[in-house]
Nucleic acid binder design. Structure first.
Lengths: 252, 252
DNA sequence: ACCTGTGTTTCACTGTGTGAAACAACCCAC
DNA sequence: GTGGGTTGTTTCACACAGTGAAACACAGGT
């Protein structure tokens, strides 16, 4: 009985992705021996059915199971938020990220920086600080009581200067109160994770709420000189909140 | 960007299999709208890469992940033993089954009866009794001490006449001793799970050993009038044990 | 004995997938 | 800045691979 060569190739690529995690198109072409054009068409086909996804941030190809059966929570979140971040960036033009709290800092799962026409900051930020960043503040402000206590406990154990504010409960309370009253979180004006000498970058963030818990945060960054925070918020906040809700729904 | 129609179809079939469990070729043809010939070639291609498997017993198509990542232990076992049972049946001609102990009886996971030219017994046996069946005896005789105690405890709670022997520890000990001494288990001559008036059917069975535990048993059945138990054992026992070892290796 | 359903095989056609090559964007080194 | 070497993307003509209809065999059931 004859086999379908085309399908065989596709499955072989799936296998390759499963084994050797994130791979660039060229790397895939080398390992599989297929022409790049062929490979690309295979990949987009796989992507359509949810068996592969392209990282917005790194541009690499990742393995992915159809969303329902993905077990690792972070990976599931990464998977569902990819297309939504992309879509948002198409409309707003400014880039945004999705981050989760983990062990004292915010980890960025996915970002649309590469898709954005503006080069806000190119460095991939690992370990964003909770208290001065927009995403961190959003997570903290809308966290459940237990989660918030855990986060603050973590931060008090930290030696980082940026986490030092956690020792002052009144200041933290005030920060949380302001944020909740405003409806969104803002980055501390003096906080630069990237190269210091850049143009001043602002950011707003909202939480991704699942079952009364803030499981993650989405932000939007822009260069402060282009637009005031108030203007930017009135222009894009609603859309950002919509995206957060979409992520939550797709994730749950 | 164009998609690969052929690959798309294949993935769609995969999805169908994932959703609606075991499906016949005709049923698949109806749901997918593809021609049966096309479908068959898709299925064998999927089978090659371990994404689908055809049940030897029911002839239906099942969903399957590549063996390594399958989580449910019974399903993994079913997957790996399929081809091996098939292969064995090609050489021995007589059919065989693989069964696991579960809650007081032996459940048949896979069988090569349909592949065998001899119609030994057509009824799919659910809930085979432990003490009079070859597979049950094999599992019991080579079980770990803890497992054996559990099995016997289960059986003593049963109301089934076939399980009554469990109340007599000396008889059970003797049965186990004989079986281990012989090196394989035999069916109790008077035990018929199928229609009673059939030609007399004999069976021998050996355990599938993984990490010192009997996780399952494989048997071979034949009509007693064709060959004596001794002759049959000398002819096929070695091969049967080889298959049991192969299953264990593939499973572990 | 019939019929309806299955799974399997064959076969001609055309539509589809293929890879080479040309292309554009990018990064890095010098 | 300028160039070489990446990378990802697109185009294109050709061959061949995949397709579905149909004819086939084999079962089970009434």
């Amino acid at each position: 009985m004859k086999r379908i060569e085309s399908l065989r190739r596709g499955l072989q690529v799936m296998q390759l992705l499963r084994d050797e995690a994130p791979l660039s198109l060229a790397a895939l072409a080398r390992r599989s021996g297929l022409a790049k054009a062929t490979l690309l068409r295979i990949l987009v086909t796989l992507e359509d059915s949810g068996h592969a996804r392209r990282g917005l941030g790194d541009g690499l190809w990742h393995a992915a199971g159809p969303v329902a059966e993905e077990t690792d929570p972070d990976r599931r979140l990464t998977q569902v938020c990819g297309p939504l971040l992309d879509q948002l960036c198409q409309k707003v033009l400014w880039p945004s990220d999705v981050g989760v709290y983990h062990g004292g800092s915010i980890r960025v799962l996915e970002t649309s920086r590469r898709v954005s026409p503006f080069l806000v900051n190119r460095v991939v930020n690992y370990g964003i600080h909770v208290l001065p960043s927009a995403m961190g503040r959003a997570v903290l402000a809308w966290a459940s009581d237990a989660d918030r206590a855990q986060i603050l406990a973590d931060l008090r154990n930290s030696a980082e200067p940026h986490d030092r504010l956690a020792a002052h409960p009144d200041k933290v309370e005030e920060l949380i109160g302001d944020t909740r009253a405003r409806g969104y979180a803002v980055r501390h004006p003096g906080y630069f994770v990237t190269v210091p000498r850049e143009a001043l970058v602002s950011a707003i963030a909202v939480p991704v709420m699942v079952q009364e818990r803030a499981i993650a945060a989405v932000n939007l960054s822009w260069v402060a000189s282009a637009q005031s925070e108030a203007d930017f918020a009135t222009a894009h906040l609603e859309r950002l909140q919509q995206v957060a809700a979409d992520i939550a729904r797709a994730y749950a």
